[in-house]
Amino acid sequence: MKKHIIALLAAATVLTPVAVQAKTTPQELRRDVREIREEKQDLRQAKRYGTRAEIRDARSEVREARQEYREDKQDYRRQVNRANYRAARFNAPFRYNSWNTGVRMSSQYYGSRYIVNNHASQRLPAPGYNQRYIRHYNDLLLVNIRSGHVVRVYRGFYW
């Protein structure tokens, strides 16, 4: 009886799937793009020289490669977003305002805790002299910190 229980427990641990969260990297995304190109090239060749079944298989492989790329890209965006904003608290102690270009805002809205320093990783142009990117809830504002005027507004930048 003991042997059967031990055998069942061993089988259960071997057969139980382990949930592993794989981290997506930019290198993996580039690899996926290369795979899509190769699959498209195979599809072109199948269209020239292949049978209908080969063409159908090549199309399904291209479709699967594209789907995998979309999923990996979405995972990567989620990881980057979590990593950049995990520790910071961007919910301001004041209510949400919808800012427009040219409006003057008080200095409490662009304090040091709301400044976004990683503009290059967000694919934003470098701010000019005396300008800073400020996060206000899900909006991103380019503010002239000397005068307090809003230079540019990116609404819904952080979804």
Rank of each mutant, 00 (worst) to 15 (best):
E54Y: 06
A19K: 03
R31M: 00
A126K: 11
A88D: 11
A10D: 11
A120I: 13
V153N: 03
N138K: 09
R82K: 13
V62R: 08
N84R: 15
E61W: 11
H119T: 00
A12Q: 05
K47L: 12
M105F: 02
Y85T: 10
A11H: 07
L142V: 06
T13H: 01
R34L: 06
R70S: 00
H119C: 05
R59A: 10
P125G: 08
Y109H: 07
V18G: 10
S107L: 01
Y85D: 07
E71R: 12
N138S: 12
S98M: 07
A87T: 15
Q45W: 04
A22R: 00
V143W: 02
R78M: 06
F157N: 07
D42K: 06
V150N: 07
T51V: 05
R113E: 13
I145R: 03
L141W: 01
Y133Q: 05
A22S: 04
L43F: 10
F94G: 03
F157R: 03
E64W: 11
I145T: 12
R77M: 12
K3V: 14
N138M: 01
R95F: 14
L142S: 00
T101I: 06
R30P: 00
Q67C: 03
T16S: 14
K40T: 03
A10T: 15
A88I: 15
K47E: 15
N97G: 08
V151I: 06
A10Q: 12
F157D: 05
R82M: 05
A126I: 00
T25C: 05
L43W: 01
A11R: 10
L9Q: 10
K2Q: 13
Q27S: 01
R30K: 15
N118H: 11
A46K: 12
Y69Q: 02
N130H: 09
I36D: 08
S147P: 00
S106N: 10
R146F: 02
A11T: 09
R135N: 03
R132N: 03
A65W: 11
S106D: 09
S147L: 05
F90D: 08
Q131T: 05
Q27E: 08
F157M: 04
N97M: 14
W159S: 14
E38I: 12
A120H: 05
S112N: 14
R104W: 08
R34P: 02
Y49D: 10
T16C: 07
E68S: 02
R37W: 11
W159A: 14
G102H: 01
